[in-house]
Design a protein around this nucleic acid. Structure first.
Lengths: 300, 300
DNA sequence: CGGATATATTACTTTATCGTCATGTTTGAA
DNA sequence: TTCAAACATGACGATAAAGTAATATATCCG
């Protein structure tokens, strides 16, 4: 039935594994980790795969290499297959199945991480690897199956990703106690920390201009979590997702800010269309995630 | 990334291949084909896979063996994976990709085979394996990925199969020239050949009883194509799918039969939900099939 | 029971592929 | 031009897995 695959040698799990690792790391050197034998082995293995498939899988780029289109396709395929076998094995051994989830740092810290306690309970027999990444990287990870689930805004979704909304992410102004009085008097004087991560800053500034709201932006942070640190130290107020509130109770109270009312994002769970087929357990996990996360987002 | 898969030995493409072949053939002996070395090799390889996954994949049944639930799942998985790699290789080498299609014998002979000329043209770079099977086997083949496409009646579809209608299959009475005069005089006297394949006979008899139509059924065939042979020999009239008409022009003309008007079946193309993901070319092929087959069914 | 059939087990040989070492080639940067 | 970084190539021993053979065990059937 699969004569074409095995009529000639050249295909082996080890070679495919090496290739996927190179695809992952982007360089043989990183996979070989300084070991010159391993470097030569991997280089040869990729060559053997190329001979087997009759196509270039990598090409040289500068000192290193990059995958060809065929190479990326093969890496996707094989990653998927290895996941399938890994899960099957874990299932057989009644071992936990590992899922990899990612979100922006602020979502991760203030939404996903706190909800994990609940999620872990309703996802018996699964373990999780959480990572904070920029939205673009999350989407890329979902596309090439290095991630299983991502929590992202709806507008970031591209086919063949699927999306399940968990609620609207709103923003609020958090003013530390030290600046509370000043904020009551004249909001435009309050030193403000903003995040320049993602596309939030632009959106915010456009809204501010339209509302003719003067603002004293003293600090631009690379993430909301960093802005929250400035807030904690009392040097500045910050515009943060409202879900940060439970983590700053003694520091600041969120205040609705008129220009923020119009800024909100449909947040949800994203995954690859094929995920449920390849990893059957992910169906249940999706439910657990949706339940666990919706609750928190509604509260905020 | 896939430490669990490769931390211990025991997994190899060869072993997986042997296992899938056994799953296919249902017995080690059939795969080994009389060679006792191969028999022992395969038996051992399955054992090694079982050790690797930590689960029984087969169990003894009578003199032979059968797959366990885990075994069936693994076979499904691996078949899918091998298909993916096979296609990838064929694509790399710009070689044709092989698709396996099946239908009942009558559909195959009178609908699919004639349409293949057209389909082959619009499916450049694909080759086909056609097989005639009973509907139940077609469905089973689609479910476990031993088949890519099936032409079946809609009512046979089960999840996670998908269905695309190509038209209604109708039936007509074909009377050979030798019996033509008799049929004009008294239809109930005409010796009739019927197919007992599938669920057609029941449906037909119920309809006949309701219409109080007396019939002289002299022969029950195991397939419509066999009934058509009796028709060709002139010994009996036959109820056949109307699409048989172009193949019997000199033998008999189809006559509409009142009780047949109510019997018709939604015929269509069936495939596994995952097919389009695993074998990208199947998307185009589905279009070609739908186009090629609809034309013929409308004509009939 | 005894024979036939199918699979399992054990021991050994052969081979494909891995692992390693030495060395060559390409490329970017000083 | 030279150096260093990264990958490629060729040679060869080591090894896991395939291949082979003989034999054991399980099951059905007469």
């Amino acid at each position: 039935m699969f004569e074409n695959l095995f009529a000639v040698g050249g295909l082996s799990l080890d070679r495919l594994k090496s290739f996927v690792e190179v695809a992952e790391q982007g360089a043989i050197a990183r996979v070989a980790d300084g070991d010159p034998s391993r470097q030569s082995l991997i280089s040869r293995q990729i060559g053997e795969l190329e001979a087997f498939f009759g196509a270039e899988l990598t090409r040289r780029k500068g000192k290193g290499l990059e995958l060809t289109e065929a190479g990326r396709e093969l890496a996707r395929q094989v990653r998927l297959q290895f996941h399938g076998l890994t899960d099957f094995k874990a299932d057989c051994a009644r071992q936990p199945v590992e899922f990899r989830m990612a979100a922006g740092n602020s979502i991760l810290e203030w939404l996903l991480a706190p909800a994990m306690a609940r999620i872990v309970l309703s996802a018996e027999g699964s373990t999780f690897v959480l990572s904070g990444q920029r939205t673009g990287d999350v989407v890329r990870g979902l596309l090439d199956h290095t991630l299983d689930f991502g929590i992202v805004r709806k507008s970031a979704i591209v086919p063949p990703l699927k999306f399940r909304p968990i609620g609207k992410l709103r923003y609020a102004l958090f003013v530390p106690k030290s600046l509370s009085a000043l904020a009551d008097r004249d909001l435009s004087k309050v030193p403000l920390a903003l995040s320049v991560g993602g596309n939030f800053l632009e959106t915010f500034q456009i809204a501010a201009k339209q509302a003719k709201q003067e603002l004293n932006i003293v600090s631009r942070c690379t993430s909301f979590t960093l802005a929250a640190q400035l807030l904690r130290s009392g040097v500045a107020a910050a515009v943060l997702p409202s879900i940060a509130a439970p983590f700053l109770p003694s520091v600041a109270k969120p205040r609705p800010l008129s220009i923020l009312a119009s800024i909100s994002r449909d947040l949800g769970i994203a995954w690859h269309r094929r995920l449920m087929d390849i990893r059957p357990r992910s169906t249940d996990l999706l439910e657990a995630l949706a339940n666990g996360l919706s609750v928190d987002l509604q509260k905020a």
